[in-house]
Design a protein around this nucleic acid. Structure first.
Ligand SMILES: [Mn+2]
Ligand SMILES: [Mn+2]
Ligand SMILES: [Zn+2]
Ligand SMILES: [Zn+2]
Lengths: 167, 167
DNA sequence: CTTGTTATTGAAAACCATTTTCATGTGCAA
DNA sequence: TTGCACATGAAAATGGTTTTCAATAACAAG
């Protein structure tokens, strides 16, 4: 009994808990309970730059918290996407991929470069200044013209990486 | 026998056959046979601005060519996407959506405005001049920096349309 | 117009990521 | 500590898409 409790504590003592404490507040602020599974999913997402599938996340969480079920991973991801803490992508390989949305400082926003040969995905953050300005300008133009309240955008470039081109 | 043949001819006599003849050449040029089903799928796609699912297309083709099967629609779409005649999109409703790629003049390229409330999709063609220039510039920068041969891009803005905002 | 070769097809079954169901467990406000 | 609404896991269901396979049709050659 005590062992189990200790396991839980040691599991929760993670870099995530220290560094991304605000995520928990957001979850609770939206009226959801902060469970071990939800924390573990956020923890996995906060430790990687990759674009993990639900099953990827399930397997990674499973390493430190074997009691979790795949169903809960799906449910947690769905909730996190709904409250805006996580982005959900489709890169065309038949399964959804997830990444943590930018923190409160919003400094981590990026776009994607996708290799249609091997599926490799590059996170691309080095926007030109013009690019940021134009994006905002375009959003304003579209908002006015089509009467949309624009909240987000998706920008992906497709092509062949060096390795895939040499074949 | 003659009736059947006449049916085929009358089916093929469509605005599409006159206006989008080049599509057929592209299909045959890639080593594929031009069948009635394939022609009918291209015909449906060429007549709409909408973003049809495979089943939408199946039902529309079925009206003039009831012999077609859903399987063939999927296979045809897959082939058309592979040779670049059709674009495949995921707007997050669990089914793929398709639209005819721009013609040889390439004047029909557009981006999308997606309402996350009702799923409405606006085709948005009125690019600012800067936008086009910057897009090209960005592609060049990315090509060089990450050694990618960029062939395409996907740009979508998400938000709430007027109707969905009033609720 | 035939014919022969093969790509193509439709129906049915398989696939597989995701969702639903439902009985059990747990976070947390009181 | 307690109660209960919310959250969970296992198993089954769902549903869009793909695979299988025997039958068919496109089309190049004659
Ligand atoms: Mn990313
Ligand atoms: Mn469109
Ligand atoms: Zn590649
Ligand atoms: Zn709407």
């Amino acid at each position: 009994m005590k062992m189990v409790f200790n396991n839980k504590r040691s599991f929760m003592k993670s870099e995530f808990e220290q560094g991304h404490h605000w995520c928990r507040h957001r979850v609770k602020g939206c009226g959801f309970r902060m469970t071990i599974g939800r924390e573990a999913v956020l923890d996995v997402l906060s430790r990687t730059e990759d674009h993990l599938s639900a099953e990827d996340i399930y397997m990674l969480v499973h390493e430190t918290y074997p009691a979790i079920g795949l169903t809960s991973v799906y449910r947690t991801l769905d909730m996190l996407v709904n409250i805006g803490l996580v982005y959900k992508f489709d890169f065309g390989d038949g399964r959804a991929r997830f990444e943590l949305a930018e923190g409160p400082k919003g400094k981590d926003h990026h776009h994607h470069l996708v290799c249609t040969g091997c599926g490799r995905i590059v996170n691309y953050r080095d926007f030109i200044d013009e690019e940021v300005a134009l994006l905002k300008k375009t959003e304003e133009g579209l908002s006015k013209k089509y009467n949309f309240a624009i909240t987000n955008h998706l920008i992906q470039f497709y092509g062949l990486c060096e390795g895939c081109r040499k074949k």
